[in-house]
Design a binder for these strands. Structure first.
Lengths: 340, 340
DNA sequence: GTGAAAGCGCTAACAT
DNA sequence: ATGTTAGCGCTTTCAC
């Protein structure tokens, strides 16, 4: 059932039917009602492509997901973010367009997307420090918002980010307050902006307390289970091993726990860990401690905000860039204890 | 740059340019070369919507992701599956179209998708037992493939699934062989087909050994961290607590471990757990044991297979339904030990 | 081997 | 308040 069929059936012109359905005021209420009923009865939906062609808007937003060629991992955070963004899109009649690319030829994909005219805007995932994609998108004139940031010069594009630096500064301080002096950092890949900021927070806390950090206890890589496992073993093999671990991801945390189990170390007694993204933090102690984890639900919220941002830019292309720095909102407390 | 601009520039008709670019044989090689070079130089990409309108194919596949209204969780498995599917799509010039919906109005979304003509086919995620979506899609005549299955009568649609029943049967047997007699099952929501099959495998193993299962040790819900945490605590509070846990998801496994830590139970000594989806299984013991986990990489492979299936159906709509039952391919061994 | 023209399903000026 | 008409950018007959 297309517009022509429907209008033939109703004995009206396509125009009138279209107007009735799209809420134009010049249609008589009686006609509108008749049209709407018929449309509903015949399950009519305007063809998206035709509508897009005619209006010049696609009503869809692109998400480009870079995949490391090296590892078979996709950050699970992504799923929650998508869920949040999806909510906003549905609510506004938008679709979501996903492209999965090897991180090697991302630029090409953006160019494609722009010239194929398949989306009205784009969300950038997993920004690196000084990510070239941002300039590229600006040059292409494609509306976009970034989940995260990309180094300095954050003023001239739209982004939503959590305060990673502060989160890790707080977490580190918390462990220092418990008496820990050797704190290992299992960070993400520090080419990624979020990981660089986390590292910074970790270092800031050390600096403020006059503590020196030990590079041998600082790890950086894609946050797989195996990485968590292997890094913990390496840290423990250090002549002067850490008494606490600060872990960037729940997935790596599993590997880390496995390694600690193997070494017979009991959490909260022999060793402490704090894991970012760990939803369960608040369960163990109800105390109102400072906060530093970005949980699944806050990632989802970030998705909502980010999606809304692109829609805003599309609606009003000349408005100034928007920024949102989210503070995390859960309390500390996973398997942490005083230094042994 | 569109077709008209390009053909004007070349002094050719749109027809010829289109033919040259789409590999039609009647174009002279000289012209073709000239056209291709110009297209590349000007970064020309045919407009997707216009092409779609003209050909009647959208070159895009829809993925509909149901979200529980109740919980803020999205199965992380999804991300890996998407990654695999995305690879296949890119390779074949297809796009991926994502719709996130509250599980309450999924049917409407499928109807929308079908009548809006925005995709050539669909992948069904997270099938329930006797999922009504399958009949709906068959009625709508939309090509589709299911990730997973949907109860009995699996013959008349396309699916890719892992052998969940066998996986859990093996895992249970493995624990029984180690001497465990009280094995708790932390299953997913048993309305979902995969969870029902896992339960079945668990029960089959008990039945074959003449053991009775204790319903008080069998849990079923969405696989959140909190669910893992709470279920383990409940199981341990049982007058006759389990000596082992079989856990359906790595996310719940984290909660479970947290609970065990709190009770001071040491894995592999006081208590055993085996977690489905745990990538690290093979690390601890190199032994060549039977296999039962679906890992991230095999989920990715499932995504590839499933995507290829829809493309096949689209290319050849009359071909008989395809089925692929994947056996899992990693060895046992996470935090398991003999019964204490 | 190349081009003119119709049409995919819709919207939006421009009538009336 | 309703209809006519001309596109949106492409593919595809049909003609030369």
């Amino acid at each position: 059932m297309n517009l022509k069929d429907l209008s033939d059936y109703l004995g009206l012109s396509q125009t009138t039917v279209s107007r009735a359905l799209n809420g134009y005021p010049e249609v008589s209420e009686k006609t509108r009602k008749r049209v709407q009923d018929a449309a509903a009865a015949h399950n009519y939906r305007p063809n998206t492509r035709a509508k897009g062609l005619a209006t010049g808007r696609t009503m869809s937003i692109g998400h480009v997901i870079p995949i490391s060629a090296r590892h078979e991992i996709v950050n699970p955070i992504f799923a929650d973010f998508i869920a949040g963004a999806g909510e906003i899109y549905s609510k506004n009649g938008y679709d979501m367009h996903l492209t999965v690319v090897p991180d090697t030829d991302e630029a090409r994909v953006y160019r494609d997307i722009a010239s194929k005219g398949s989306v009205d805007g784009v969300i950038v995932h997993g920004p690196l420090q000084n990510d070239p994609r941002i300039k590229l998108l600006q040059d292409l004139g494609l509306p976009f918002a970034v989940h995260g940031r990309s180094g300095r010069g954050d003023e001239d594009y739209n982004w939503v980010d959590v305060n990673n630096a502060r989160a890790f500064e707080r977490a580190t301080n918390f462990l220092i307050d418990l008496g820990h002096r050797r704190i290992a950092l299992l960070n993400g890949n520090e080419k990624m902006d979020f990981a660089a900021r986390r590292r910074l927070g970790y270092l800031t806390a050390h600096g403020a307390r006059g503590l020196t950090h030990d590079p041998a206890l600082m790890f950086s890589d894609e946050m797989t289970e195996h990485y968590g496992y292997a890094s913990v073993l390496r840290a423990l093999d250090h002549p002067s091993p850490p008494t606490a671990f600060l872990i960037s991801s729940i997935i790596s945390s599993i590997g880390a726990r496995r390694a600690l189990e193997e070494r017979g170390l009991q959490l909260g007694r022999d060793i402490s860990i704090i894991t970012h993204d760990d939803e369960l933090s608040y369960l163990k102690n109800g105390e109102d401690l400072p906060i530093f984890t970005a949980t699944r639900s806050s990632v989802r919220e970030a998705g909502r905000i980010c999606a809304q941002m692109v829609l805003d830019v599309i609606a009003n292309p000349t408005s100034p860039p928007q920024h949102r720095l989210l503070e995390s909102d859960l309390t500390v407390g996973n398997s942490t204890g005083p230094a042994p």
